[in-house]
Structures are given as C-alpha cells and as structure tokens.
Amino acid sequence: MARNRYILNFKGTLPLPTDDLDVIRSRTNLLDTSRKTLLVEVDHDDVVQELARVLPNWTMQKETVYPVPTTRPTVEKPPEP
C-alpha cells in the first residue's frame, strides 16, 4: 500500500503546541521537523482531512517531488558512417 506524504505548516506563534504535536504523532508517521514545518506520512488521505478539521492553526499540503534533471551530455544525432 502506498503511503502519502504531507507537509504541515504551523501558522501560529512558536513554540509548537505540544497538544497539536501529540495529535499529529498519534495519527501519522512523523518523518521530519523544522522550526514551523512537519513532514508526515499517512496511509489514507482521510487522516489529513480529519487533522485539518481538528487543527485550525495548521495548513496541510501534499508533498510534491520533482525529478532532478540529468546534466550528462547526450548525442542528438549519431555520426554518419
């Protein structure tokens, strides 16, 4: 089963509320934290919708992954024999 990753941003003043963090940890897999941002992993998107209702001071977005472009030179047209 694929797990989805979400980025949660806290809109309030620091420090992060411990009650909010307890709720987030109980319903998600907390992968990484920074000052006001959390990266979490969930089994179902319904969990994030439920967290959005319970935690009004947080914004939640699905993680976007961009592929790294290759920098290797490529041959556009092979040489003629």
Rank of each mutant, 00 (worst) to 15 (best):
H44F: 09
T33L: 15
A52F: 03
M60A: 13
M60T: 03
V54M: 10
K62W: 06
D43N: 09
L55C: 01
L39H: 07
R25T: 01
L39D: 12
R35E: 13
L31C: 11
T37G: 05
H44I: 04
V23D: 12
L31M: 12
M60C: 04
M60G: 01
K62V: 05
M60L: 10
L51F: 00
M60V: 10
D46H: 14
D45K: 01
K36A: 13
L21G: 10
S26E: 05
R25Y: 01
S34D: 14
H44G: 03
E50D: 14
L38M: 08
E41I: 01
W58R: 07
D22M: 12
K36I: 08
D45R: 04
D46I: 07
S26V: 01
Q61D: 12
M60K: 06
T59C: 02
N57C: 00
E63F: 05
T37P: 00
L21M: 08
R35M: 09
R25E: 15
W58P: 01
R53V: 05
E50P: 09
V42A: 02
L39M: 14
L21D: 08
R35V: 08
T33E: 15
E63W: 02
N29W: 02
L31R: 05
I24Q: 09
D32E: 15
R53Q: 11
E50M: 10
K36P: 02
L30S: 08
R53N: 11
L30D: 11
E50G: 14
A52D: 06
E50C: 11
R53M: 04
S26N: 11
L39Y: 13
V54T: 09
V42K: 02
Q61N: 09
V23T: 09
N57D: 11
D46L: 13
Q49M: 09
V54A: 12
D43F: 10
E50S: 13
L39W: 10
L31Q: 12
K36S: 11
V42G: 08
H44L: 06
T59Y: 03
R35F: 10
V42C: 06
Q49G: 08
R27H: 15
W58G: 00
L55Q: 02
T33D: 14
T28C: 04
A52I: 03
Q61F: 12
V42F: 03
D46N: 14
S34C: 07
L38Y: 02
T28E: 06
E50F: 08
K62C: 04
K36W: 00
V40I: 13
R53C: 01
R35W: 09
R27I: 04
L55V: 00
L30H: 07
L21P: 15
V48W: 01
M60H: 03
K36G: 07
D43G: 15
N57V: 00
N29L: 10
W58H: 05
I24R: 09
L38D: 08
R27W: 14
R35N: 11
L51S: 08
V48P: 02
R25Q: 13
L55W: 00
R25N: 15
T59F: 05
R35P: 04
L31I: 15
V47M: 06
D46P: 04
P56N: 05
L38G: 00
L21F: 06
A52K: 07
I24C: 12
D45L: 02
S26K: 12
P56F: 08
R35D: 12
